[in-house]
Every structure is written in structure tokens, then in C-alpha cells.
Amino acid sequence: MSTETKEKYEKYYVPEQSPWPIVGAIGLFLLAFGAGNFIQQSTDKVASNDGSWGWLFLALGLAIIVYMLWSWWKDAIRESKQGLYSAQMDRSFKQGMMWFITSEVMFFAAFFGGLFYARALVMPWLAGEGNNAMTHAILWPEFVAQWPMIVTPAGETTEGMGAWGLPAINTLILLTSSWTLTIAHHALKDGNRNALINYTAISAALGIIFLALQVLEYHHAYNEMGLTLGSGIYGSTFFMLTGFHGFHVTIGTIFLIVMTIRCAGGDFTAKNHFAYEAGAWYWHFVDVVWLFLFIFVYIM
């Protein structure tokens, strides 16, 4: 690293002042404030909080954030096209993206940690293992340890989600999309514009199909299996993990759609395509998370 820095040090571009950061902060504030009121009002937790206007703030906050991101990136793209960004700047962006993905990995790790802890430790304890014989005997005498936990200690029942139907198909879809995206990326590097556009578009389309199937799966879970967020720790971990993953796929898909449009509009060169690369990394990350999900949430 150090030798590289030494050779490639160029004049650094410190960007112009920009209103977007503070606009983004205001957007986040409105989003958070609105979400708090909205959640309280719509889940009836607090009778005294008539937060019926909460969604307004929520929507406004979201709109501001979308607008802010749009404008911010527009500025960045413009500056990049003006040639203001050095190779060093490009490396900064890339490293920033890598560390951002690392933080996302840790976010998922928290939920995976929850799943492992609940499944490998809490469940046996509630069934009397370790130093918890009395926990079982006195508090939860009926409880039997099994995963998926189709009967909770309190006696709620549900069904376990199988792995080899939709989830397996979804695995194939995501793996394929990763592959098509790699083809697209190579096409970009080789200067093959048509292949680039087509394969990026295919990847985005696969993302949409994945999401559609996931909606179908949720529908099935809620309406036919009685598997909900409220179905004990099994339902909790199942929906939180797959849900946050789905949320990330949504973001990734939007990312890919935007990339398709930009590629079609002639953006990016074989050498200079940080945004595209970031999108690709993000997509692969989402893909890898899914593999873990498939193994630990569905199969095991």
C-alpha cells in the first residue's frame, strides 16, 4: 500500500461546499421522528399518542433523503465527468464502499448471532439442559426443544418453512444474477457496451423476480402456515433475517436499475466506473448473505 501511495500521489480534489449533508441530516431526523409516531399510532401501543400525522413526517423525510441522495450523486457524477477525481479519490471511494459493506455484514451478524444463540443455547435451556433443569420443570414443563420451534414455551404453534420449494428456486435466481452481473462487469472492462447493458438489466430483472417470489413466500407463511413475526423466536428470526435481506435486495435492485440506465446513457468507461463496481460488490454481498440464510434459516 505504501509504495503505491508514494507513486500515485496527485493533487487532491477537496470537493466544493455542499448543502446535501445537512439536508440529509434533516431528512433522517424527519424520518425518525415520523417513524416513531407512526409506529406508535399504528400498533396501538400508546393510546395517548395520536400520531396520525406521523406518516406525513415519515414520507417527507423519505422524500428528502431520496432527493438528497439523487442530488448528491448527481454532483459527484458531474465532478467525476469533469475529471476532477484523481485515481486516489477513486481508491477512497472504493475503500469506503468496502468498509460500508463490512458494517452491513456486522448488522446481519447481530441477527445471525441472535439466531444461533436462541437456537443452540436458549432452546435447550428452556427444555432443561445445562443448569436449567428447574427452568424447565417449574416454568415450562411442556416445552420440547426442536427446530423449527413449532410450539413455543407459551404454547403458540406454527409451521416450519421448508427449504426446497421457493427458497431453493430463489437461491438459484440470486446465484444466476451474480453470475450475469459478473459477465456484465467483464463486458464493461472489455468495452462491450451491448453486453454490459443487457446483462446488467438481466441481473436487475432477476432481483425483481426474487423479490416477487419472496412476497409470495411471505403471503403463504402468513395465510396458510400461521408463521408470522409473532410465532416465537422461530418466526422472529425467520422474518427479521429474510426481511432485512429482502430490504437489501430491494436497494441492490434499484442500484442495478440505475446502473442499467446509466450504462444505456453511455456512462462509465472501462477504467473509470466506481459506481458500477460498488453496485456489483453490493449485489455480491447480498448474494452471500442469502447463501448463509439459505443454509442456516432454511436448511438447518
Binding site: 435451556w125 428452556l126 427452568t135 417449574i138 416454568l139 415450562w140 414455551p153
Partner: peptide, 9 residues
């Protein structure tokens, strides 16, 4: 610690 749902000894 007295933990709801568990019995410590």
C-alpha cells in the same frame, strides 16, 4: 439475577 422466564440457582 432474577430473569423472567428462567430460573437461576
Amino acid at each position: 439475577d432474577a430473569i423472567p422466564g428462567f430460573i437461576n440457582e
